[in-house]
Amino acid sequence: MSKLLKYEFKKSKNVTLAILLITAIGEALFLAGSLAKSGSLLASGALILSFAATFGIFIMAVLSIDILHRELNTNQSYMLFLTPRNSYQILGSKILSSAISLSLMTVLFAVLATLDLLLIGIREVGMPALADGIRRALGDTYLYMPAGLIRTIATGAAISYGAWLFLIVTAYFADILQATVLRSKKGAGWISFLLFLVLAGAVVFLQNKLAPLAPPVAETAVRSCVFAAFIVLFFCLGGWIMERRLSV
C-alpha cells in the first residue's frame, strides 16, 4: 500500500509544486508589503494567496479525478492493474493520497490565513486604513480576539475539507461506474458526470435534512459524519465493482 501511495504522490508532484510555488510567491509579496507598509504589494499578495487556496485545492481535486479516469480507460491502467494489488488497495491509495494532500493543503492555507490576518492585526497601528477595511469586512472580533479567528478558520477548513474529499470520492465512484457497468454505452462520460451530480446532490440533501435534527453545537459533527459515511460507502462499492467487473 505504501508503494502505491508513493506513486500516487509522484503523479501529482508537479502540480503540487506549482501550487506551493505560487503560494510562496503570494506569501512573500504579502510579507514584503507588510514590512514595507506598501498597500499595493500587500493586496496583490493577499489576492494571489486567496486564488492559490481556492483554485489550488480545486485543481488538485480535478487532477486526481483525471488521473483515475486515465488509469481506468487508457493503457496506463496496466501500470496499476498488472501489479499484484487488489482494487481496494488501488482505490484506497488514491483516496488516501487525495486525503493527505488535501489535509496538508488545508492546514497550510488555514495556518497562513491565521498568521497573516494576525500580522495585519498587530501592524494595524501602522496601517489604519487597511485594518479598517478588514474590520469592516470581517467584523471587529477578528482583529482583537485571535481565539475567535482561529475557531472560525478551523471550522471552515474542516467543513471544506470534508466536502472536497467527499466530492473527489463521489467523482471516483461515478468514473468507476462509467468504466465498468456503463462501459461501451454511448455517452458513458456524460452519464457518469450526471451521476456524480445526482449522487453528490442527494447526499447534500440528506445532510441538510439530518443536520437540523442535531443540537446546534453538533451540526458540524453531523455534517462531517454524513460525508465520512458516504466516503466509506463509495470506496467499498467502488472497490467491489472494480474487483468484479473492471476490464482495462
Binding site: K10, K11, N14, N75, Q76, S77, Y78, M79, L82, T83, P84
Partner: peptide, 16 residues
C-alpha cells in the same frame, strides 16, 4: 499476477 509476467503490445508507462 505475482507469477505471470505480461508484455503488452502497446506503450503503457507513465509519461513522466
Amino acid at each position: 499476477r505475482k507469477e505471470i509476467s505480461y508484455m503488452p503490445t502497446e506503450s503503457f508507462f507513465y509519461p513522466w
